[in-house]
Amino acid sequence: MIERRPGLTFLAHLILILGVLVVAFPVFITFIGSTQTAEQVSTSNPLSLWPGNNFIESYRLALFGGKTTGGSTIAPVAPMLWVSFVSAMVISIGKIAISLLSAFAIVYFRFPARGLVFWMIFVTLMLPVEVRIGPTYQVVSDLGLLNSYAGLTVPLIASATATFLFRQFFLTVPDELVEAARIDGAGPMRFFFDVLLPLSRTSIAALFVIQFIYGWNQYLWPLLVTTNEDMYPIVLGIKRAIFGEVYVEWNVVMATAILAMLPPALVVMLMQKWFVKGLVDTEK
């Protein structure tokens, strides 16, 4: 029997509401600032909590660029949003594809030093980014991949974490499924596509959400491999909007920040059911 305690229920909901307010309030302030003019944002102390009447102009300047009333030149972020979207999709899909195949090979194929190969992959998690980023940049530069989608995405595709998670999941798949596939005459790749992939779809969805956000929020690597503004992702666009002008158009900066938050938020909302299911349900 479940014991109902109204006091504890109220306290739990109160803590959750406070947590939501703490997280949502900066986003709310950013949105309010994006609807006001640069002068209102700069001179208001404290910033007004009511929306202004500059919503359309702020987002038009953020998306398509142009001259502001203060004389600043705003670079359009629409191309940056596209660069971030392509990079995030390639990174997330590439990580999942390579991790699935590598985990499949480690679990279902017998070859010398199979365990050593897995642990060599897993040990890469212990290497700090600073250790790997210099040699990786040198390789990308030598291959002529600077200022390209390949340079932005290929070095980030390999994922020891995803390989580890898929390996652990594949180890829980009953051996009877493997034997039944062999009896039916299914080869390794047919077993992979017809059995393992359908069983892994919730895990794939959960990892896709995580990896999409990871790829979308990349800052340090694009900062190194892109010198052409046409290949700037949106995160670099925010940095450029703040440090690129003597007079910062804060309303445009905040509009850019809101635009940068929308795609990851939409991915989380649209895939929330699959994301939660992939974390708590193995679907075997």
Rank of each mutant, 00 (worst) to 15 (best):
L145A: 02
V123T: 12
L152A: 07
Q168C: 07
A162V: 06
G151E: 00
R132A: 15
D175V: 05
S159H: 11
G151S: 00
Y137K: 14
V129C: 04
T172G: 07
N147F: 02
T163P: 07
M126F: 08
D175M: 04
V139N: 10
V129P: 08
P155Q: 08
M126D: 03
S148Y: 13
P155I: 01
Q138F: 09
M126W: 09
E130L: 10
V123R: 07
M120G: 01
T136P: 10
P174S: 05
D175P: 02
G144N: 11
I121C: 01
I133Q: 03
T161N: 07
T124R: 12
G134C: 04
L165Y: 03
D142L: 14
F164E: 06
L152N: 10
Y137Q: 12
I157T: 02
A150P: 04
I157F: 01
L127Y: 04
P128V: 09
L125Q: 00
D142V: 11
L125Y: 01
T161S: 11
F122M: 01
S141W: 10
G151R: 00
S141M: 12
T124Q: 15
P128Y: 10
S141C: 09
A160V: 07
S148V: 13
P135Q: 13
A158I: 05
G134A: 10
L165V: 13
I121W: 02
F169L: 03
G144Q: 11
L146K: 13
T136G: 09
Q138P: 03
V140G: 15
E130S: 14
S148L: 10
F170V: 13
Q168K: 03
T136L: 10
L152E: 04
E176H: 13
A160G: 06
D175R: 10
E130Y: 10
L152P: 06
Q168D: 05
T172I: 02
R132K: 13
L146G: 15
G144V: 05
V173E: 08
A162Q: 01
I133L: 12
G134W: 04
T161R: 07
V173R: 09
G134H: 07
N147A: 06
V129R: 11
P128K: 07
V173T: 05
T136V: 12
A158D: 05
A162Y: 01
R167H: 11
Q168L: 03
E130A: 14
T163N: 11
L125D: 00
Y137S: 13
P128L: 13
T163Y: 08
L125A: 01
T136Q: 14
L143F: 10
F166M: 09
A150V: 05
V173Y: 07
P155Y: 02
L127V: 11
A158G: 08
A160C: 04
E130W: 07
V154T: 14
D175K: 09
L127S: 03
V140I: 15
L127G: 01
N147I: 06
L156H: 05
E130H: 09
L143Y: 04
V123S: 14
